[in-house]
Amino acid sequence: MEHEKDHIIPYRTFLYVLAGLIVLTLISVTVTKIHLGTLTVFIALLIAAVKSTFVLRIFMHLKFENRMFTIMVIAVILLIGVVIFITLLDYLYR
């Protein structure tokens, strides 16, 4: 695993990301105070998605790993999405 030696992630990267995540959390909390109807759900989940992308890419170092991992993670998330979607097909059209 020699090539991994190249990118010991510096401490400050984590601190920056952490700061970003906390800011996003606070934004998410503030936004929900404003009543936007169904848009609230969408925005809250969007921010959660952005946050999780940061966690996955930096904290879980997907950015620096073999592409295979990224593909697998995306596939699994899509799978959960499709399962929810198909199940909802039943409930939305009852």
Partner: peptide, 9 residues
Amino acid sequence: NMSGKALYI
């Protein structure tokens, strides 16, 4: 008694 759409998909 699923929805019709779910059934045929």
